[in-house]
């Protein structure tokens, strides 16, 4: 009998709720599945047991990700994933808490929780899947939809300009900030692994394609065409340092954009608890 080709060639298989939850809700060619693979490979490389991982999400296409994964999975209310995750992490710091969110979930309705988790520097790794649009509700404008792009609620072009989640996270006080794309899969694996390895708040933006809405409304083509655009416009941060500014026009930076050591919130709280216990002994 032939071995199951998926099972034998793919480490992610062991971590999925294969029999219970598939097929998934995503459109054919969607990048979110690629990000799911990267998250699982990063967790596998960290050597975490399934029982010690808590995967938390909000609402939207990207937030459907946890249901397919065999961890402690928590699919919460719109925008609130990081707030729920903060409770999980602080009440049980031994859990490895990972948040999966999207550009609408994480930066619009959940923007306040996002910046405050960065500020607190609580040990949560957040993977923000940015496809520049609301997919699940049918292609409306999001906080990362670029100026002049089209969306179902911007039929004459977007008058607003988009957030850059990485500069936002850095300014708000995160320890680790990175950006990858669903075209550069091996790099994305490493960036999420770097986030998991970080003691403190880590934010990895995973740039993804929504060809169903964003691609169609902005004439960027199908999934493959959008992946090609990512390939053409992504610029590794190391390479960008030696290039003149005119060569960087229209490009976006990928790689580890910010990485510092700072005191982590749960550890600081544990020190406080320990100090009271020591006083008790005296």
């Amino acid at each position: 009998m032939m071995a199951d080709p998926i099972q034998s060639s793919n480490v992610t298989y062991d971590y999925l709720r294969v029999k219970k939850r598939f097929p998934n809700v995503w459109c054919a060619g969607c990048g979110i599945g690629t990000v799911m693979g990267s998250i699982i490979r990063a967790i596998d490389k960290m050597g975490y047991s399934k029982d010690e991982v808590a995967l938390v999400s909000g609402i939207g296409c990207s937030s459907r990700l946890p249901v397919y994964c065999d961890f402690n999975t928590l699919h919460t209310t719109h925008g609130r994933a990081i707030a729920f995750a903060t409770g999980v992490k602080l009440a049980k710091p031994s859990l490895k808490v990972i948040v999966v969110t999207g550009d609408g979930d994480g930066l619009a309705i959940g923007g306040n929780h996002f910046i405050h988790a960065c500020r607190r520097n609580i040990d949560i790794t957040t993977v923000l899947i940015n496809n520049q649009i609301y997919g699940m509700t049918g292609g409306q404008c999001s906080p990362t939809t670029p100026h002049d792009s089209f969306a179902a609620t911007a039929p004459y072009g977007n008058m607003e300009k988009g957030f850059d989640p990485t500069t936002l996270a850095k300014a708000a006080g995160a320890s680790y900030v990175a950006r990858g794309t669903v075209y550069h899969v091996q790099q994305l694996d490493k960036l999420i692994y770097g986030g998991l390895n970080k003691k403190g708040f880590a934010m990895v933006e995973a740039f993804s394609n929504c060809h169903t809405y964003y691609g169609r409304l902005n004439k960027e083509g199908d999934a493959v065409a959008m992946l090609k655009l990512m390939k053409e416009h992504a610029m590794p941060v190391k390479a960008a340092k030696v290039l003149p500014p005119e060569k960087l026009e229209g490009k976006f930076l990928t790689g580890v954009l910010w990485d510092v050591e700072m005191p982590e919130y749960c550890e600081l709280y544990q020190n406080l608890i320990d100090s009271f216990q020591e006083k008790d002994k005296e």
Binding site: A83, V88, A91, K92
Partner: peptide, 26 residues
């Protein structure tokens, strides 16, 4: 903290409610 528990001042009441649900699940 004297009882080995955790207090956190969240950024709003929505987050407060979310955090206690997350904590209770542990």
């Amino acid at each position: 903290p004297k009882c080995g528990g955790h207090f956190i001042q969240m950024e709003d009441e929505i987050a407060s409610m979310a955090s206690i649900i997350g904590a209770s699940l542990t």
